[in-house]
Design a protein around this nucleic acid. Structure first.
Lengths: 345, 345
DNA sequence: CTGAAAGCGCTAACAA
DNA sequence: TTGTTAGCGCTTTCAG
């Protein structure tokens, strides 16, 4: 079927193209009768307008894009739906766009902005160093949500929502120490990772240091470079390695909840009971953590609030051209049954 | 910053727009010198072409879209990456597009096709009744992958890749029966679901009937309408309900692996051991199933092959205009430790 | 090798 | 209330 255009519809209906345009866009200045007649033809012939032409012509759309780096990350996935709801609630159209690892986020964002005449955008995930310059040049409001930056770079000076990974790593380990643990194993991301994993590791070290416990490299298991960082597989392999190495530890900090499920398995296979023989703490507070056996104690990222804040910040920038703001959330400890107090020996 | 156009670049470089076009698109018929000069300006000014204008003008792109209904379904999520790899391997550009539940897939697909001048598309997930008519009208090759259809409608007569849910439900339960179980509980999707969940339920009933075991409604737990079908929460609630009701069962069939993790929890809380007191079998064979304790016995959907087949079918249609084909895969049983033989009593 | 000019399908002035 | 027309930014003939 040759592609139907607005001209064809106009011809069929014996009206001008602008009349058809008015009909399909629900614009005023058209009689109900003609409108109805046109819409009937539109239905009958299954006419669907070409968005490229539309976007090209339109001065501005009503769309806000969520640009996601790491679409296979379950943590981000749980945010998609919420973002859509919040954004629609504010009266905007919602567009989800995945950027693959080979692409440059800012370039993709720019393309998308031009293509769709975006009103604003939220960048979710990934890692960026000094993005504000290029992003500001875009000329539309944006918010970074859970975008990592390496330790070498300062927190970007632009709208940013997320948690402080170093601080939360610190809090997590501090909790373990408060529970009497001193030999604390760590299942981390890739060693080459200089962002999230590195920051939480830094927090781990700081907590140790503060408690006068020397840092021992043999207690940390990095992810194999060919294994997904925050996956059960990494947890399994990491815990396995730790156990096999023979180092003693009474607690284990896994950098994500998904990691803990693999760690649970390795521990189970080795006959090490959680939490009697080894306490385990996770990170993220995903739904799954609640259903593990034993229930996982974990640091919960306030996803809902982070989403709401991101949208709010964007709205402020949209409405008032407000100055960039940052919202750094605290993770909250969810105590379940995987961590126990260690008796003094 | 006012949006930079190709004209601006042309002006800056003192060349015609077509020359700029040739440069940025790597087309022949341009001297290396001018090209280099132009590209330098492009870099310097961060010029990025407007895709809408591009798409509008271009007769055809090289893009194949993956159109996903249910982007938050972990089963589909695990396919994204594979699809991208396979499609790129065949030399196509890849585009992931999420369709929300409120939208009509075929409409979205049509819009996208017109907008991006798609070469072909793969529809992943969702449920469709008699889609072939409207889809065929699009005039570009397509493949349905894991698209459900209700029992009221026949398998669509078009390229289709997936499993036969009724058959696999049957096989699953048959295996349980072969292992000596007769009182088999079922944690299903929503009762109103007339597709995947209904089909697997039908298979469950058929296996029972074939073995001369009467179907007992009190053994099946449907998902609460306000709970995600194939989630841990559903598994927890469902198993809890079953246990509380006091019906006796020696095995439990959960319609997804994620459901089993909630079920494990409910069983654990009730002091029912898996598999000694109750066998549990899952469905999907996701990575997680391997790391559960005890290791989950489950029916594994051959995801990799399904992805490859989908791409293959599309390529055939693209290259040769081949007739529609279907590829129905069998799930394969992965035996781990959650199902045990029931002794005759 | 390069530039001028004609649209792609649509929306938004402007006329009628 | 309607129709005519001028572009949106780009690619692609077609001349030079």
């Amino acid at each position: 079927m040759a592609q139907l255009t607005i001209k064809d519809i106009a011809k069929i209906c014996n009206v001008g193209v602008s009349t058809v345009s008015r009909a399909i866009n629900n614009e005023p200045g058209i009689s109900d009768k003609t409108k109805e007649r046109i819409m009937q033809v539109v239905q009958e012939f299954h006419y669907i307008p070409n968005n490229s032409a539309r976007n090209l012509k339109m001065v501005e759309s009503n769309t806000i894009a969520l640009i996601v780096t790491g679409i296979d990350n379950i943590f981000f996935q749980s945010m998609f739906g919420q973002f859509e709801v919040e954004l629609r609630k504010m009266g905007y159209d919602f567009l989800l766009h995945a950027v693959s690892w080979r692409e440059d986020v800012v370039t993709v964002a720019t393309e998308l902005m031009k293509e769709k005449r975006l009103k604003g955008m939220i960048l979710l995930g990934g890692q960026m160093e000094r993005p504000e310059e290029r992003l500001d040049a875009l000329g539309i409001p944006y918010v970074l949500c859970t975008v990592a930056h390496s330790a070498d770079y300062p927190m970007p000076n632009c709208p940013w929502v997320g948690i402080d990974d170093e601080l939360e790593g610190y809090h997590t380990v501090k909790y373990l120490i408060r529970m009497g643990h001193r030999d604390i194993a760590l299942v981390a991301g890739q060693e080459a990772d200089n962002a999230v994993s590195a920051q939480r590791l830094a927090g781990y070290k700081r907590a140790l240091q503060e408690a006068g416990i020397p840092f021992r490299p043999e207690l940390v298991a990095f992810a194999n470079p060919d294994v997904t960082d925050f996956s059960p597989e990494n947890g399994y392999l990491g815990a396995k390695k730790l156990i096999a190495s023979g180092v003693k530890f009474s607690a284990m900090f896994c950098m994500s909840d998904l990691i803990t499920v693999g760690a649970y398995k390795a521990l189970d296979e080795a006959g090490i009971r959680v939490p009697q023989d080894c306490s385990v703490i996770g990170f993220d507070g995903i739904e799954l953590s609640k259903y593990m056996c034993p229930g996982l104690t974990t640091m919960h990222q306030p996803i809902e609030e982070m989403v709401k804040s991101s949208v709010e910040l964007l709205m402020q920038a949209l409405d008032a051209g407000e100055k960039p703001k940052q919202k750094i959330y605290q993770a909250t400890l969810i105590e379940r049954d995987s961590v126990t107090k260690r008796e003094e020996s």
